[in-house]
Design a protein around this nucleic acid. Sequence first.
DNA 1: ATGGTAGTAAAACTA
Length: 256
Amino acid sequence: MKIATFNVNSIRSRLHIVLPYLEEESPDILCLQETKVSDDLFPKEEFKKRGYEVYFKGEKGKSGIAVATKIKPVEVDFGFSDKTEEDRVSILKFDNFSLINLYVPQGRKPDHPEFKHKLEFFEKLLNYLEKNFSPEDNLIICGDLNVAPTEIDVHSPKKLKGHVCFREEVWEAFQKLLDWGLVDLFRLHHPNEPGHYTFFDYRVKDAVKRGLGWRVDHILATKPLAQKCKDCFIDMKPRLKEKPSDHTPLVAIFSL
DNA sequence: ATGGTAGTAAAACTA
């Protein structure tokens, strides 16, 4: 089973990348973030034509998530238990595992209310896990977590320390997820390897060529599933296309 | 260097 996560930065502007990706790589499940489209305008037929059912929630111009799947879920939900964050959280339950797709708030600046929002989002997520799942369950959490967890996950740790995606509070939030019982699948398969990034700021000139990236997109899994993860890698091929997203797909392969 | 670009939109706002 192949699962991929991709922050598309507008699904309608990225169909020339996403649709060939489905055809060529045929992931069983593709989780998308920053779809930036209202539900009535989501291009669902394009997914159906290619054999995927797609579940989505968004509003025009901001945030928004979607999950395209070839496997039929038994249950689909959006948001946390209090019905907040519906355009940032989806929960799909399948026969033998569950999948949470996340678009965590970026946070803007450490003193901005959005940073508080980001930290509260992580607290709600942890509460949600504690209430609804056990570390013994087969659970995958993926998406744009807007956290680079260690200094080898950014290009210039000294310079970037203090950024809303690279500072103490978000490291703690990320660590709490691991402490609950989740494994960072990319790091599991590439321990201590610097220079692997999923995000490159459009505003940094030749960022990809110069390796000026961040690893902020993740696939986490509980230990029973992590044991079944055969590989996890960042797929840079979609970057070679015209008008790439500022993120790139992250893929995990499971023997399930 | 407090910039830069790309997306939503139709003037700023977000990442």
